[in-house]
Simulated scan of single mutants.
Amino acid sequence: MKWEQVREQYPEQWVLIEAISAYSENSIRYPEELSVISNFPDSTTAWKEYKKLHLAEPSREYYIFHTDNDILQVEEQKFVGVTRRLQ
C-alpha cells in the first residue's frame, strides 16, 4: 500500500506501519510500500504497540505516523551507544 492510500483509508489518525520497501537518500529514510498494522486515535497508544512489536522483532522496519503528514520521511540517526567487551 502507498502512503496516499493509507491517508485515504485512515484520515486524521495515527497509524502503525511496517515498511515493506524503503530507500535512503542523504540520511533520510523514505518508506515506499507499506503495510498498516493498526490505527489509533492517539499517539500514546500507538507508541505502546510500537514498543511491543519492536522489542519482539527489532530487525523489522516499524514506524508511527499521523495521516495528516503529506510525505513520509524519517531522519536517519547514527547509533551512538556504549558497547562492552567481554574478556
Rank of each mutant, 00 (worst) to 15 (best):
Q13I: 02
R60M: 03
R85E: 13
F40D: 07
A19P: 00
V82M: 03
P41C: 12
F65D: 04
L72S: 10
I37M: 02
S27P: 00
I64Q: 07
S27G: 02
I64H: 09
K51C: 00
I28L: 15
I71A: 04
V36L: 10
L55S: 15
S43C: 07
P58V: 14
Y30M: 04
Y10G: 09
K78T: 00
S35D: 13
L16A: 05
R60I: 01
V80H: 10
E18L: 05
E49S: 15
L53E: 02
K78W: 01
A56N: 01
T83E: 12
L72K: 12
Y50D: 05
A56I: 03
Q73V: 01
Q13P: 02
S21P: 07
N26H: 13
S27F: 09
P11A: 12
Q77N: 09
W47K: 15
F65S: 08
D70N: 06
K48V: 09
L53S: 04
N39W: 00
G81K: 03
K52Y: 03
E76P: 00
E57N: 05
V6R: 07
T45L: 10
I20A: 13
I64A: 05
K48S: 11
K52P: 02
K51N: 07
S43G: 06
E25C: 05
F79Q: 06
E4R: 14
H54S: 11
Q77D: 02
E33L: 11
P31K: 05
W14D: 08
E33A: 15
M1F: 01
D70R: 09
E25R: 11
P58K: 10
Q87W: 07
S27A: 08
R7H: 10
Y50N: 01
Y30N: 07
E76Q: 11
T44K: 10
W14L: 03
L86M: 05
E25N: 06
K51R: 06
E76H: 05
T67K: 02
D68S: 13
K52L: 11
L34N: 06
L55I: 11
E49R: 15
Y23F: 14
W47I: 14
Y63L: 02
L53P: 10
E76C: 08
L16P: 12
E76A: 12
P11N: 11
K51Y: 01
L53A: 12
K2M: 06
W47H: 10
I28K: 15
L34R: 04
V6Y: 00
Y50A: 01
T83S: 14
A46M: 05
S38N: 01
G81V: 10
F40E: 02
S24R: 08
E61G: 04
N26W: 03
M1N: 04
Y23D: 07
P58T: 14
N39Q: 11
H66L: 00
S24F: 09
A22Y: 13
F79H: 02
V82G: 01
Q73C: 05
K2N: 12
E61D: 13
E76D: 00
